[in-house]
Design a protein around this nucleic acid. Structure first.
Lengths: 155, 155
DNA sequence: ACTGAAACCGGTACACC
DNA sequence: GGTGTACCGGTTTCAGT
């Protein structure tokens, strides 16, 4: 496994994190290089998975009415086997857009998006609370997404 | 303003949400069309901001040691002016990668990433708790990111 | 590791249905 | 709204340093 990233790599990552469509040519100009080294660096960053992939950011509000809810889930006992089981089932549920194992008052934080309130109650009841070993499920309904850049601040 | 999306538009959005680098040619083949209509649809989806943009997904773990924390913030009084003030300040803080206005026990959910625990305590104290009208700030430290597809499930 | 040039391929434009 | 063709610019490759 090769070593770490130099300053140029980091600048490339930052640019691509902002706009994945920025061309090799443009990046090369910004960095005062020619296209070849930039191209090879990007390919290396992709191959070594510093870049996991490229995605389109959709304006979900315009596409379809929906609500998103953060669900705070506690297990009754944090035995490894229960955790693993829970995590496996989470992966299959498309309504769950993100899931974090956290420390604190509860064990998991889920970001769920569904059509409407009815759909959420149904989902929470039949897909989450019904899993084995679930303790409490609390919900925080998103009223407004104020910021969602997801830019890595340490670059 | 034109009307809504048809089935082809939705399929295009889904493909691009999974991999923004999918070419016009490839998409056209998958949908049984030629390049032109696919190309024009994508341009339309971009111009009308169904697609907000394209970004690279970085493997932040590999780039630099960091911790991410969800912070639950309550205001002392939910007066509109205080909310607006809070939201303005949030935008400037690069450590805050996402911010949601929520309903429930608290008012805002922040996703924060910083170098380490020290940096977080410092950040929470000097940048969040010090803002006017802040009630409580609770924290949930992310131990593991289990899922973060962010795919819109209603497509 | 980077430069410069050449080859190649996909995005883009256009005429037509 | 769709097809098929042709152009053109950027990506990709490669020889040289």
């Amino acid at each position: 496994m090769p070593e770490n990233l130099d300053s140029i790599d980091r600048q490339i990552l930052k640019i691509l994190e902002n706009d994945a469509k920025t061309g090799v040519k443009t990046i090369a100009e910004k960095l005062g290089l020619t296209k070849t080294p930039v191209y090879e660096r990007i390919k290396r960053l992709e191959k070594e998975r510093y870049i996991k992939g490229y995605v389109a950011i959709l304006n979900t509000d315009k596409i379809e009415e929906s609500i998103t809810v953060f669900s705070f889930v506690s297990l009754e006992a944090q035995k490894g086997s229960f955790m693993d089981d829970f995590l496996l089932r989470i992966q299959e549920l498309k309504e769950i857009r993100a899931c974090y194992v956290v420390g604190g008052e509860f064990d998991f934080l889920l970001k769920v998006t569904v059509k409407n309130l009815d759909a959420y109650y149904n989902f929470a009841k039949s897909k989450i609370a019904s899993l084995p070993n679930i303790g409490a499920v609390k919900s925080a309904f998103v009223l407004n997404e104020v910021k969602n850049s997801e830019h890595f601040p340490l670059l």
